[in-house]
Design a binder for these strands. Structure first.
Lengths: 241, 241
DNA sequence: GTATCCAATTTTGTAGACATTTTTAAATGC
DNA sequence: GCATTTAAAAATGTCTACAAAATTGGATAC
């Protein structure tokens, strides 16, 4: 109980931004591969790298674990964390899960009133048309594709899914970006197929046929996994690089 | 008890147990309704209640959020958390999601070699038989039912799902317990229907028909949601009690 | 009586310290 | 040279302190 309680200066970012920052930064590091799949994660290192204390880093890691970017070996607590590896099997599982989730959402989208449905269909057609243009314009540049495809699917979710399904999709779907970034240039080659599958989705929505929409979405993701698997076979799994 | 406790006050549980404890305790509080749906959660209160600091409580809340027991208003960080409410709509969404997830796992279970499949089928039949016995023996006591049903479904998942799907199921399925506990006594009445649906699942697995297994599991959950919805209609949503 | 602004309280976010466990490396014995 | 034990280092789990927000309640003006 000294008289002088020297307040060690706290640089202080802006309060309430560190966790957010940590989450996004670390996620970025993982998605862009600067943190290789399989790497051991050390809280302290990341904290130093991001210029903050371990507290928000730890929180961010929990979040990233929740989203599947980071894995632990044991269960709750005792976290010995690693960057989630990218494997063909995981891609298969990931894609089929998303297929079901979106299928479920699409089912409800298909049950909306006609007016809403045609509105959405138009929106989707718009995205798909832009994708087509990219395909036509060779050399196709990869950058916009991911976002367009992302938007296409997000539109369906947002119109059909309830809060729980939406949250689930929001947590899982972004993980495809890691695979996308790794194999993008090779995937573009098959883009026209995905576009064709999108057409079927759009038509099914227009028709208001729930079963057909669900099936079409599942197929789109299932085929996407297949296409991706093919590329992985050729280039090998990127456990680290 | 010691005479000279020069320690600077570090009660110290056992190191590495607090987070686990907090997670389970809080989850228990929520599942048993001692933390009512919709209640505002205050880290400090819980910490005091559990006799630990806010740090592990905060971590546990992140986990519980991941599992869906707790909701936030904003996104990452800025957690203003509440206990997730129990509504008919949420139950519907929850159940249909689980139906898809299990369906996906069941699909792969159905693709296992004959030997494995009949092994699993036997295990499932065993669980289902125990459920039947409970139905017959009136008054049916609620306690064992949830666990049996739980085991039934878990067997399917564990035999068919990959790590990702397994983790997802493990995170989502336990949430049904909240609805179960709320409306258990009323659900028991319809138990025989669920048992019949289980038979279909078992047969489909025995036959190795992936589509049929997937469908049967979806139907089981879909119908479960319907049965639950009926009860909720009668007794009202328990936003708090 | 109502609305608005300001102060006090509560609650969350972050940092840093410390304890314990795990890992790594070295040293010793055989 | 290999294995085992032991000491040092690193990493994680938890606690406490403090700062920044957010909320609440009251006082004042109209």
């Amino acid at each position: 109980m000294s008289a002088i309680k020297k307040t060690v200066s706290k640089p202080k970012a802006e309060h309430g931004t560190s966790l957010r920052t940590a989450f996004h930064e670390i996620r970025e590091l993982i998605v862009h591969g600067r943190l290789s799949p399989g790497t051991w994660i050390v809280e302290g290192d990341l904290a130093a790298r991001l210029g903050m204390s371990r507290t928000p880093v730890r929180g961010a890691l929990h979040w990233l674990q929740r989203e599947g970017y980071v894995l632990e070996h044991k269960n709750v607590s005792k976290s010995r964390m690693i960057v989630a590896p990218l494997t063909k099997e995981d891609a298969n599982e990931l894609y089929s899960i998303i297929g079901r989730i979106e299928g479920l959402a699409g089912r409800r989208t298909a049950s909306l009133p006609d007016e809403k449905r045609s509105e959405i269909a138009q929106q989707l057609r718009n995205y798909n048309r832009q994708l087509e243009e990219i395909v036509k314009a060779r050399p196709a540049k990869a950058h916009g594709i991911f976002d367009l495809d992302h938007n296409f699917h997000r539109s369906i979710i947002e119109s059909g899914a309830g809060p729980r399904l939406m949250a689930l999709h929001k947590a899982i779907e972004p993980q495809t970006e890691r695979y996308w970034r790794l194999y993008a240039s090779s995937i573009i080659h098959d883009l026209h197929r995905s576009i064709a599958e999108h057409e079927e989705i759009i038509e099914a929505i227009s028709a208001g046929d729930a079963d057909r929409v669900e099936k079409a979405l599942q197929v789109n993701w299932e085929n996407g996994a297949e296409r991706l698997g093919h590329v992985i076979d050729v280039f090998g799994e990127r456990g680290s690089w």
